[in-house]
Each structure stands twice: as C-alpha cells, then as structure tokens.
Amino acid sequence: MTDLPKLTVWYNTKCPVCNAGINRQRNRLLRAAQSGAIEFRDINFEPDALARFGADIEDVRRRLHAVDAGDKLHVGADCAVAIWRRTPGEGWLGRLLGLPGLIQVSRFTYDRFADLLYVWNRRKGHW
C-alpha cells in the first residue's frame, strides 16, 4: 500500500458507469479502504459536502471529486490519478498519467468523456 494521505472520493452512485467504476476500484482498494486510506462517498446523500470548495452536486455528477487529508481538492482526471496512485497494481498508471505534459492530455480526455457521460445520464434520468 502507499504512504499517500487519506483520500475521500465523492461520486454519483446513480450513474451506472460511475458506480461500476468506483465499485471496481473499491474492490481493488479493499485493504486501503479498510485501513481508512481511502473512502468513497455518495454525493446524493450529502449534496453540500463540497460547498466550501464551491462545488455542488451537479459538479460531482459531471466529474469525480476528492479531498485529501491536506484538504486539497482533486477534480476529474486529477481525482482519477489520485485514486490510481493509491490502488495496488495501478500506481504506475497514476504516476504516468500525472506526469507533466500527460496530465493535460489526461484532463482533456477525461473532461470530454465526462461531458458525454453527463449528457447521457441526464437523458436517461439517472438522477
């Protein structure tokens, strides 16, 4: 396991794609989750949880959000990178996609996918 600070990840359980992705990560991160190194929270139960950062429920429905132990907010691809860095066997992916130059590509790709997924969820009524 990693020595990175605790990470609290906020996501939308009503999105089938988001929920499946987080469940996959949660299973891979079982040891980390049990030790308290990472926690997954459903934004639908605490819609104002990230208000101090200016983020609301719609922001989290559009992109993953996480807060680390240092109270730093990670959004979108930066959140995914933070999760991968804490996932056994996937730390290399987080380090790679978080490299200068590649993080911009990661953010662009994540944001385009997240935008499409958000529109799809709205059309399907996954709220």
Rank of each mutant, 00 (worst) to 15 (best):
1 M>A: 10
6 K>N: 09
7 L>S: 10
7 L>D: 08
9 V>A: 11
10 W>N: 13
10 W>F: 15
11 Y>M: 07
11 Y>R: 13
13 T>A: 13
14 K>V: 05
15 C>N: 11
15 C>E: 08
15 C>Q: 10
16 P>S: 04
16 P>I: 05
16 P>T: 06
17 V>A: 12
17 V>E: 12
17 V>R: 06
18 C>W: 13
21 G>P: 05
23 N>G: 09
23 N>W: 09
26 R>W: 15
28 R>V: 06
29 L>M: 13
29 L>G: 00
32 A>D: 05
33 A>P: 03
35 S>F: 03
37 A>D: 12
39 E>M: 03
39 E>N: 06
45 F>V: 01
48 D>Q: 10
48 D>E: 07
50 L>N: 03
51 A>R: 14
51 A>T: 11
54 G>M: 05
55 A>N: 12
56 D>L: 07
57 I>Y: 03
58 E>K: 10
58 E>A: 09
61 R>M: 04
65 H>T: 05
66 A>M: 06
67 V>G: 08
67 V>W: 13
68 D>A: 13
68 D>W: 14
69 A>V: 08
71 D>A: 13
72 K>I: 14
73 L>S: 09
73 L>G: 07
75 V>F: 11
75 V>L: 14
76 G>Y: 08
76 G>S: 10
77 A>F: 02
77 A>M: 06
79 C>V: 10
80 A>M: 12
80 A>E: 11
84 W>V: 00
84 W>P: 09
84 W>G: 08
86 R>G: 10
88 P>S: 06
90 E>Y: 02
91 G>I: 00
92 W>I: 00
92 W>L: 05
97 L>G: 03
97 L>F: 08
99 L>V: 02
100 P>C: 05
100 P>A: 02
101 G>W: 01
102 L>W: 01
103 I>W: 08
104 Q>W: 14
106 S>A: 11
106 S>W: 02
108 F>A: 08
108 F>H: 06
108 F>S: 01
109 T>L: 00
110 Y>G: 07
111 D>I: 01
112 R>K: 11
112 R>N: 00
115 D>Q: 09
116 L>D: 03
118 Y>S: 04
124 K>V: 05
124 K>N: 07
126 H>S: 00
127 W>C: 04
